[in-house]
Design a protein around this nucleic acid. Structure first.
Length: 296
DNA sequence: GCACAGGTAGATT
DNA sequence: AATCTACCTGTG
């Protein structure tokens, strides 16, 4: 992997507005499957979204950040505020979840205090989860990296941003296949062609009700209920969205005794049981299951 | 070699 | 309406 340019990074600075993270929740929030463009390097994580390149590291005293010297510090902290959805009070939302009468959820919350739902750029979130079907997280990351390198614009440090939908439409399906997308390449290219033709589609989706936004997303090729819900949750902050993947299905079956329930029934259960922040509960359970703390 | 992986769409029953 | 199945590719 050749980087044509290198950029110097700022000295580490305390992220004064940082939310209160436990270390496990910090790791899980940025590198637990919500986002696919973070990698761990030594004692820090380096991540990219939009035009942003940010390094973060956990310290007992709080979170510290760094970024290429070419970027204004205020721009970075502003981007962080949005990305980490600082306007949402996840501590309060967590307390309002039914953990008092739900042992698996209590186990998960105790293990990941401070876990958050990211608010990523909408289009990038859609792209990431269109890549995700029957793929493991390391492979999804590798695909995103390959697509960025081939099609995305260069960033100040010589790495690449994810391409926009217009760029993906122009690049064509063959180059997506070359990034190991397999059968997903066709869906993604067809979606790109549609979004390139309907420039306001995503913007209008962002301002729609969650139900309407889900319907709109599911019109796109390759976007079913699960990918739509992931996009709504991790890209739009719609915390009521409750993506049911193979993990969550197993968790609900084994830890909640819902063996044999259909996805539609599980959706109803999740809404009734977990309430308006069901998606946050989903993320706690997903994290705990991956860590082997609850049955899955 | 073969099952399986943060699914979806189209066919078949 | 519920239940198969094909679809790419990497990994164990």
């Amino acid at each position: 992997m050749i980087q044509s340019e290198t950029a110097s990074f700022r000295p580490w600075q305390n992220w004064l507005e940082a939310p209160s993270f436990g270390e496990a929740a910090f790791n899980e929030t940025i590198d637990g499957g919500q986002a696919f463009r973070w990698r761990r390097i030594e004692d820090y994580f380096e991540g990219r979204w939009g035009q942003s390149i940010v390094r973060l590291r956990y310290r007992e005293s709080g979170i510290q950040w760094s970024a290429p010297t070419s970027e204004q510090p205020e721009k970075i902290t502003g981007a962080l505020s949005t990305y980490f959805a600082l306007d949402s009070k996840f501590e309060e939302l967590t307390d309002a979840l039914p953990w008092r009468s739900d042992q698996p959820l209590k186990t998960a919350i105790d293990a990941f205090p401070g876990l958050r739902i990211l608010r990523q750029p909408f289009g990038e979130t859609l792209f990431g989860f269109l890549c995700s079907s029957t793929k493991q997280i390391p492979q999804i990351k590798a695909i995103c990296e390959a697509v960025a390198l081939d099609i995305g614009e260069a960033l100040p440090d010589g790495s690449h941003a994810l391409p926009g939908w217009q760029q993906i439409a122009e690049a064509g399906e063959a180059r997506l296949r070359a990034a190991k997308l397999g059968y997903r390449a066709k869906y993604i290219h067809q979606t790109a062609l549609y979004l390139a033709e309907h420039r306001n589609f995503l913007k209008e989706t962002e301002s729609a009700t969650t139900e309407e936004a889900r319907k709109r997303l599911m019109q796109l090729p390759g976007v079913g209920r699960k990918i739509a819900d992931c996009t709504l949750l991790f890209g739009l902050g719609r915390l009521e969205a409750f993506p049911i993947d193979t993990w969550v299905q197993k968790i609900l079956a084994r830890a909640y005794g819902l063996e044999g329930w259909k996805t539609e029934q599980l959706q109803d259960f999740a809404r009734a049981h977990f309430g308006p922040s069901a998606g946050l509960a989903q993320q706690y359970l997903f994290a705990a299951a991956r860590a082997g703390l609850i049955a899955a």
